[in-house]
Design a protein around this nucleic acid. Structure first.
Lengths: 206, 206
DNA sequence: AAAACACTGTTATTTTTATAACATTGTTCA
DNA sequence: TGAACAATGTTATAAAAATAACAGTGTTTT
């Protein structure tokens, strides 16, 4: 089955909302509830859910528990996916602790930095190693994803290392473009762009 | 002139790269250079630049300085756009200091938090106030954008305040959906979704 | 028991976005 | 000088995404 990338993103978001509602003791949820909580349309929700072959109960909406399971079958692998994070500054810490406590199949299993103060300490529940030991650590960790939250200057150099040692996907928060071979999936996120976008639409509210 | 939202996002990214190259002493840039640095295609770059009515020199590419100016005319307002940030935890600090030093027309002019330790201190070059004083501060600040980096529990309550006091756009990093009237522009960003997307495409590399 | 209702599921259409094709034009070089 | 080149600018086409229209179906209500 091949799903549109945008649907993949939304599935992840549906799951977050669903878990949220499940915790509150809710059992069923309508497409329009799911939609309004994410600023989507009900049609889009139903279409996405159709695409993954899940069928709700007619009058009551979707069975939250079952839908979560189904989304998991799409998004997750049986085994956990391990990630590493590079750069334990404010952003690195924010992301790492944000992940702790979220129950997902993705786990941040190690952090890397150059600051001697941080080396070998456990920060946000993850042990931090020196960046120069990436190679050796990666051999044991079985990590396929790297989250880059380090300063731009060192980013390309580290990226080269990651490529050599079998990282398959990168989430890049540094503001420089990484030069990476095609077979590695890369997702860039730039906060300045997000804010400038908000500013644009605020200033052009027609 | 009405530009596609996706082009707006890319314009912001072009500018970042352009400034980058200008600092290195580069004067001209080709569409394919700009493209490869952002993992776009040269055609897309040219098309976006066409849309904003800028014309490069035929054989040498675009004049970096001029193109930056033109993009500024599209994205910026004459006066600065002021933003406030709510929640000075790791993420709040990361974003704020990330903005300091970037020369953009958007400025984070105040921070808010509930932690007494932080109140009235200057953190990442921005003064931090108690959240309960939002109302009074907003009257002087002329801020139109709010960046929400606080814990989910308090988010909706604060959002209600923002709406009341004339905030026009919100960049929401909390993982809960905010209930906000339609005339306010809201952009949600969820890190878990980004990582899950990377994980999906890493695991489904066909 | 039948009609109205309020959902979901699916196909059709529209809109948006990206790509491709190609025309245009300075520049270089023989 | 003029032919080849290598870039931009623009129109045409294709692909992706979102929306709309509507069909199907349990449930409720009278």
């Amino acid at each position: 089955m091949k799903l549109p990338p945008k649907s993949i993103e939304r599935l992840s978001q549906y799951r977050r909302i669903l878990l949220n509602n499940l915790e509150k003791g809710k059992e069923y949820i309508y497409s329009h509830e799911l939609a309004s909580q994410l600023h989507f349309t009900p049609v889009q929700v139903r279409r996405d859910i159709m695409l993954i072959g899940y069928t709700g109960t007619q009058r009551k909406g979707y069975v939250i528990k079952d839908l979560i399971v189904r989304i998991g079958e799409i998004l997750d692998r049986e085994s956990n996916t391990n990630a590493i994070i590079i750069g334990m500054g404010n952003l690195g810490k924010a992301i790492t602790s944000y992940f702790n406590g979220k129950r997902t199949k993705i786990e941040i299993v190690a952090a890397f930095d150059t600051d001697e103060q941080k080396i070998n300490r456990v920060i946000s529940n993850v042990r931090c190693y020196h960046i120069s030991s990436i190679k050796e650590k990666l051999q044991n960790l079985d990590a396929s994803i790297a989250i880059m939250t380090l300063s731009p200057e060192a980013a390309q150099e580290v990226a080269d290392q990651l490529v050599l040692h079998d990282i398959k996907g990168i989430l890049n928060f540094t503001s420089i473009p990484l030069n990476i071979p095609d077979h590695i999936y890369i997702e860039d996120y730039d906060m300045v762009t997000s804010i400038e976008k908000v500013a644009y639409f605020v200033n052009h509210n027609d």
